[in-house]
Amino acid sequence: MAVVEEIRASSEALLSAKAPRKPANMGQIIRWLLLFGGGILMVMPIAYMISTSLKWPHEVYNVNLIPVEPTIENYTFVLEDGRFYGWFINSIIIATITTICNLLFDSLVGYTLCKFRFPGRYIIFIAILSTLMIPTEMLVIPWYLMSQQFGWLDTYWGIMFPGLMTAFGTFLMKQFFETVPDDFIEAARIDGLNELQIWWTVAMPLVKPALAALAIFVFLGNWTAFIWPLIVTNSVEMYTLPVGLSGFGDEADVAWELIMTGAAISTIPTLIVFLIFQRFIIRGVVMAGLKG
């Protein structure tokens, strides 16, 4: 019995003893500081956006983060302004349709380039990729002239058409389809499915993470798009949220507190989408070997 008691005592002592703490080395401290600094840098604009949205107009140009007299008056004003809802709906419609189109077209082209052997396949792929090197600003004038010719100015179609398919999305989807074994495709072919059915039934479910990542990229891109919607729209009713928000204020002054309020409200849908799909977006970025 004495032996048992002795063992129990020593084992309890061992269990209750705290694990020796490893002293943090200088490298780790520097890494933490850098990460902390980076985190602060990322969060500050959002913090200022929320802070400004809670300030009175006279306090907007104060750099203090905590408002002296916090108010929700700006939120009341923006939400009571009927135009805001119209812009919000416009943005939702445009971002959603563009996202769906990208999911369909990018994955179709990516799948074709990945799984079919045909002459010129590589050249087509390079041609698509090369469009990534052309800045949007360079394309705006041709797009505008085209929209004018076709009568697309100030329409949903006019806002959406440049982004219905993207080179980035095509590349992302092609890379993901590379991970789908050819045996799956061939097995389905033997089982009697046509190529479109194989793409939809077999290949697409296997690249869901890529689809989720692409959906987030495209949705966010279109939700925040500013230059093209600003150029192609004329009437206030056709504005998207970023374009509409930029117009708050009057000729004498810009109403930053209202713009920041609208921006704060407009981040909510994107935040929700991101929180739901963030594990997919991370996997998508890792597998495509690309930065978002």
């Binding site: 074994p181 045996d183 799956f184 061939e186 097995a187 033997i190 089982d191």
Partner: peptide, 8 residues
């Protein structure tokens, strides 16, 4: 009908 090496 075909059975593949990695099952498919």
């Amino acid at each position: 009908a075909m059975v593949f090496q990695n099952y498919a």
